[in-house]
C-alpha cells in the first residue's frame, strides 16, 4: 500500500502505471522544447512524490533518467521510434526534474529542469577500445571537418547553397585516425555554384533543414572527407504544439566535456532547460 507520509505528499511506486504515463508525457514535453542536439527517451524513473494540491488536483514531482537517441530534435521521427545511442557510440544521459499537475484528468507540465552528461570515456573504452569519444566543438579538427564536409556537400550540390546551423556532435576516432561530426544545415537563397560571398546568403523564410554526418580521415599524404546529408521534410505541426508555453530559455551549465559549441550546446554537455507552463 502506498506510504502516506503525512507530510502533504504520498510516496508512490516509481513503476506505477500512472507514474509511468506522467513520466512519458514529461519526456515528450522535453523533446518538444529542446532547441538543440538530440531527442531523449525515458530510461528510468528515479523518484516520485505525489503532492496534494488545494482545493483540487495533485502534483507529480518526478526525477527521471533519460538517454539520448540518435535523432536530432529537428528530425520529425517520433523519439520512441529512434534508436537509443549505445554505450559504444558514447552515450549521453539526461537527469531531469519535472513538476506535473494533474487536474480534471488533464496533465500540465509546469516545471522542467534537465542536465545532460556524456558517459565516461572509461565506460566506452571498456566495451570498445577503438570507438570514438566525444570532443569539444571548438576543437580545431572538428571545425576543419565540418568546414571541409560542408564545402564538399555544396560543391557536389548544383542547387541550393546550404549554411551551417548547428554542430550537434563530434567524436575523435582512434582507428582509423579520423574526426566524425554530425551537424545541421539550412537552405539559403543562393545557388551553390554561384556563391561569391556566403555572408550575403540568407536562410529561407520557410526553413528547410538538413542533417549531415561526415568524417575526415587522416591518410598517408593527405586527408579524405566523406559527407552524407538528409533533409528534414517539414512536418505539419500538431495543433497542441501551438499551446506550448513561452519559448524555453536554455542556459548552458559548465560543460562536462568542455563541449562549448560556438553554434549550439551539444546534448553531450550539461544544459539546463527552464520552461514555462504548457498543456
Amino acid at each position: 500500500a502506498p506510504h502516506n507520509t503525512g507530510l502533504g505528499f504520498k510516496e508512490v511506486a516509481c513503476d506505477d502505471p500512472e507514474v509511468e504515463q506522467v513520466a512519458l508525457l514529461a519526456v515528450d514535453y522535453l523533446n518538444q522544447h529542446l532547441l538543440h542536439g538530440f531527442s531523449h527517451v525515458l530510461n528510468r524513473i528515479d523518484k516520485v512524490k505525489l503532492w496534494f494540491r488545494r482545493p483540487v488536483g495533485v502534483v507529480y514531482e518526478l526525477e527521471l533518467d533519460t538517454l539520448e537517441t540518435t535523432c536530432h530534435v529537428l528530425d520529425p521521427t517520433p523519439p520512441a521510434n529512434c534508436s537509443v545511442r549505445q554505450v559504444t557510440e558514447h552515450a549521453v544521459e539526461g537527469d531531469c526534474d519535472f513538476h506535473v499537475l494533474k487536474q480534471d484528468g488533464k496533465f500540465t507540465v509546469f516545471h522542467s529542469q534537465c542536465h545532460s552528461n556524456p558517459d565516461s570515456a572509461e565506460d566506452v573504452r571498456k566495451l570498445c577500445p577503438n570507438c570514438g569519444l566525444l570532443i569539444p566543438f571548438n576543437d580545431t579538427n572538428v571545425v576543419r571537418t565540418v568546414k571541409a564536409a560542408l564545402d564538399t556537400f555544396n560543391a557536389q550540390n548544383n542547387g541550393t547553397y546550404f549554411k551551417l546551423v548547428e554542430i550537434s556532435r563530434a567524436l575523435n576516432v582512434p582507428l582509423p585516425v579520423s574526426t566524425s561530426v554530425e551537424f545541421v544545415v539550412a537552405a539559403t537563397d543562393c545557388n551553390a555554384q554561384e556563391v561569391t560571398d556566403p555572408a550575403k546568403c540568407n536562410l529561407l523564410a520557410e526553413k528547410q533543414y538538413g542533417f549531415c554526418k561526415a568524417s575526415l580521415v587522416q591518410k598517408l599524404g593527405g586527408e579524405e572527407v566523406s559527407v552524407a546529408c538528409k533533409d528534414f521534410q517539414k512536418q505539419p505541426q500538431p495543433a497542441s504544439a501551438n499551446t506550448a508555453g513561452p519559448a524555453p530559455a536554455v542556459d548552458q551549465a559548465a560543460p562536462a566535456v568542455d563541449q562549448a559549441a560556438p553554434a549550439a550546446p551539444s546534448a553531450g554537455s550539461p544544459a539546463s532547460l527552464v520552461v514555462g507552463p504548457m498543456v
Partner: peptide
C-alpha cells in the same frame, strides 16, 4: 523462532518503491 500455527507469518521484505526499472541501460 517457531511460528505458532495460525499466526500470521512475518511479512517478507517490502520491495522498494523507487527507483523504477531501467528501460535501456544504466550509465
Amino acid at each position: 523462532k517457531v511460528v505458532q500455527p495460525g499466526m500470521a507469518g512475518a511479512a517478507g521484505p517490502v520491495a522498494p518503491l523507487c527507483p523504477g526499472r531501467v528501460r535501456h541501460f544504466k550509465i
